[in-house]
């Protein structure tokens, strides 16, 4: 097999390529023409932007404990899903243990489910930056109702960011 490779003359060109590497690593360009998890366009409500993301049925119990990521190439961890609650006005909120280091010193914040998406086994917050989330008040349970594990809710999707 190797002999065939050499005969095709590609070995020579490959070794030329190897020499190129020894001198320097080329600059990079983004792969995806459209990165996933883009924030909603300006002027669009969270509900409207979530509706564009093909919300899929998901069991609340299957969301608990999921990592919550920032939609960037390095997939920074923002926190973990602790709970899903319904506010008195009917809005569904995901309670995220936010910040801290490896979960230590995290505090719960309530993020609208329409600001979040499913990314495989994880979730992402697409509508708020980490800075904005840092200014979120610590979640107070009073007046809200915990959504039971077996409830099916709908959450939008995103493609991986890179």
């Amino acid at each position: 097999m190797v002999c065939r490779l050499m005969r095709r003359g590609s070995l020579l060109r490959a070794s030329l390529g190897l020499c190129v590497l020894a001198i320097g690593v080329g600059p990079a360009a983004a792969q995806s023409p459209t990165p996933g998890g883009m924030p909603p366009p300006p002027g669009m409500s969270l509900a409207q932007s979530a509706a564009m993301r093909f919300p899929q049925p998901v069991r609340v119990g299957d969301l608990l404990g999921r990592q919550v990521l920032q939609p960037v190439e390095s997939q920074n961890v923002l926190g973990r899903v602790r709970q899903v609650v319904r506010e008195p006005d009917g809005r569904l909120m995901v309670i995220v243990a936010f910040g801290g280091l490896f979960g230590w010193g995290a505090r719960p914040i309530a993020v609208p489910v329409d600001a979040m998406v499913l990314l495989g086994q994880d979730m992402e917050i697409v509508a708020f930056t980490p800075d904005e989330l840092r200014r979120f008040p610590t979640f107070a349970a009073a007046g809200t109702h915990v959504v039971p594990d077996d409830t099916i809710i709908r959450v939008g999707l995103a493609k991986p960011s890179h």
Binding site: M1, R4, L5, R8, S10, R13, A14, L16, G17, C19, V20, I23, G24, V25, G26, P27, A29
Partner: peptide, 25 residues
């Protein structure tokens, strides 16, 4: 180019065709 620029060639054609030849192999 490699000599002059210290290689800011993203993906020279000859390298690309060599890599594709190996990929087909």
């Amino acid at each position: 180019l490699v000599m002059l620029t210290g290689c800011d060639v993203e993906r020279p054609e000859s390298v690309e065709s060599a890599l594709l030849a190996i990929s087909r192999f």
